[in-house]
């Protein structure tokens, strides 16, 4: 499958060009954040304060790595289940977030926010943490180091492989893909 090369931060034009089922290779910065970090980011926004990175066009990666061995940029680094971030995602999209990378199903509210705010949800391969780590060339913790694997880090990635699951036009590969291969027994 030929992958579309895209770079972050994402523009609305790039997001609109992506369709459910597209394979992409992402180059640029991703922001690593899981449950605990999302809880704090949303609390900051609700209090009217600045979040620790620029949300405009940003792509967040739902991931908590294993510890890096000496000499490595990062440990294994595959996606975590996105559904746990569903409660927080719409607010972040309203403040500029354009992309999310994770694995697993999103709620109707999150999918609606992606249409309203022009944003995209990618799946990276869950359980391919050793392979994905090789595409991460930079890793800097920028907030909440006390959270350990749940800290917010700015990751530099090159040709990071992902697949568009939910596009901003209502496309949903989890539904379409499953429908295409389901059969009666």
């Amino acid at each position: 499958m030929a992958a579309k090369k895209i770079t972050t931060p994402l523009t609305d034009d790039v997001v609109r060009s992506l369709r459910a089922g597209d394979a992409v290779e992402i180059t640029g910065a991703l922001y690593q954040a899981r449950d605990a970090a999302h809880k704090r980011l949303v609390a900051l926004i609700e209090a009217g304060e600045e979040v620790p990175f620029d949300l405009q066009g940003a792509v967040v990666y739902y991931m908590g790595p294993s510890p890096a061995k000496p000499g490595n940029v990062i440990g294994s680094a595959g996606p975590t289940t996105s559904g746990r971030m569903d409660a927080y995602a719409p607010l972040l999209m309203r403040h500029g977030l354009k992309g999310m990378i994770g694995k697993g199903l999103r709620t109707a509210e999150v999918k609606q926010a992606m249409r309203d705010e022009v944003a995209v949800y990618f799946a990276a391969t869950g359980g391919a943490g050793a392979l994905l780590a090789r595409r991460i060339v930079g890793n800097e913790v920028i907030a909440y180091p006390e959270l350990g694997a749940e800290a917010v880090a700015r990751l530099e990635v090159v040709d990071f492989p992902a697949i568009v699951v939910n596009d901003c036009h209502g496309g949903d590969l989890y539904e379409e893909g499953r429908g295409a291969y389901a059969r009666d027994v």
Binding site: S76, T80, G129, A130, L131
Partner: peptide
């Protein structure tokens, strides 16, 4: 039968090869 599915399976095989060779975890959730 799915091309995307075959691509994912190929990634998982390659991932296992990398983890074994580099002595790193297969998945970050250990």
């Amino acid at each position: 039968e799915s091309p995307v599915g075959r691509e994912v399976l190929a990634q998982l095989v390659e991932n296992a090869d990398i983890a074994a060779a580099d002595r790193v975890p297969i998945c970050q959730d250990t």
